[in-house]
Nucleic acid binder design. Sequence first.
DNA 1: ACTAGTCGATCGGCTTTTCCGATCGAAGGT
DNA 2: ACCTTCGATCGGAAAAGCCGATCGACTAGT
Lengths: 298, 298
Amino acid sequence: MVLKHLVYLAALARERHFGRAAAACHVSQATLSEAIRRLEAELGVPLVERGHRYRGLTPEGERALTWAHGILADADGMRADLTAMREGVGGSLRLGAIPTSLPVVSRLTAPLRERHPAVRLAIRSLSSREIERDLHEGALDAGLTYLENEPLRGVRRQPLYDERYLLVAPRASRWAAGASVRWRDAADAALCLLSRDMQNRRIVDALFARAGATPEPAVETNSISTLHAQVRDAGLCAVMADTWLHGFGVPAGMVALPLVEPAAAQAVGLVWRDRDPEPPLVRALIATAREALAPATA
Amino acid sequence: MVLKHLVYLAALARERHFGRAAAACHVSQATLSEAIRRLEAELGVPLVERGHRYRGLTPEGERALTWAHGILADADGMRADLTAMREGVGGSLRLGAIPTSLPVVSRLTAPLRERHPAVRLAIRSLSSREIERDLHEGALDAGLTYLENEPLRGVRRQPLYDERYLLVAPRASRWAAGASVRWRDAADAALCLLSRDMQNRRIVDALFARAGATPEPAVETNSISTLHAQVRDAGLCAVMADTWLHGFGVPAGMVALPLVEPAAAQAVGLVWRDRDPEPPLVRALIATAREALAPATA
DNA sequence: ACTAGTCGATCGGCTTTTCCGATCGAAGGT
DNA sequence: ACCTTCGATCGGAAAAGCCGATCGACTAGT
């Protein structure tokens, strides 16, 4: 079996198109087509739904793809590992992070780059689900995401901090009177919340629900910067993670009050693929994380 | 990179000889030599200590070998998985087992073969350390070994039963008087024990030590059948695992008495390589083990 | 010290695999 | 009915893989 053919299979699954997949692999469409055919012959199973158009992988193809992702990740890991032994940790680390963790990422990457100046970083803001998926597809080396709210499979983890929630409200509003706000009360505010496809929102909804309330947001968005802007410029209230406020400050004219009853916290941490051995860059990141950003740095 | 080259590397590390490794791979020595050279060129690191004789792998080579074992195991797993999807679980399952667990193996393999008649089994009696090593070298699919006494790394586990220890003594001896024997007292008997390279012996030694005693065995052996024979024919006492006695019975004219103070037990279970996805045969074995031989079947 | 034998590297040539450009044929949209 | 898109296929060129033979260096035995 040829490793390259697995690359072609992965590309085909990703691009869902023979021509584009071939282009992405810098080969002709004929080459890719034949490689898939060979792979099918060798494994003795059809991998793609045959027809005059790409219609997805067969169940066997999907299964093969899972294996292929693992094998390719290992092959890359081996290369990176040996390179690291020769000339120190280098190359490119692809890190996915949930939006609320973005302000924290630099606290992680700064010491990493200090130790290993040759490392190049690619940081992508992704949802927790995208992080999990891309980790398994080998499109990501590590992620910064929620550890507990929704199950994570096939990954190892290093807790880093707890995310807590605050209500950001206009200084003039009635919410600004006390030192904290109850979730139940916050539900009545004119809210700007993240959209429901984001786990942060699902967490917040669950907390509202635990307080017996159902928020009816005036504005929904899938971007935290939008959230921030809405609060600052439109005078709405928002539920924000403390990390975000630490990183970017409380908008002028607004106050941030801890949300209580329940005063819940979500564990956030580093995750990476559950494979041995670990690629050198990932190992370096974990070591850095453990030392530079031990838990209780919230 | 070509998967075949990794096979050659693994063979070379195993055989420690270019010619033999080549023969094991059914290629000429020239082919294998060149393949290693290519691999080194591609990875940019020397993998074997160069000289006019094989002198082992370089540190980079050892590292590469670890990755190679993983990648090759995955490639095999993929093939087996797809074959299983097509024509059911089949192929050959290589199972390693510590000697005291051998009587139990059949209770595991019988239901497995009943469900999957096409499966062929290769059962090897190995020490717990060999099991761990071969598992990682891809020379074994699963193992039956001690789970707790000495650390196991990079494996998943399914506890199956607890191993308990009995003193087998001549019916006429003073030990046969009571219903049990204390470790401290047993240390005074004329003993036949396993040799110190076996974990079972290390466990037994530790239990003697906990009772403040140091056994001075009259006979040491690395084979449990020898142990059994010595007890039966030479009239010595022996510390045996209950599984062995259940499997082969108490030698005629002897009695088996539980060893107490402490009445310790060692957990024994199934282990397999910590990788996702699991090969179909391994999965089938685990499922069978969980159902057919749940814990507390001692 | 010499010799025979072993071991791994290397060379030249052969075979197989891989890759590409071009073309084909089916399906879908207009 | 016509045109476009998509993937399969073909034939030839390039590359890689493999082998037998040979070389050079070390080793063990005399």
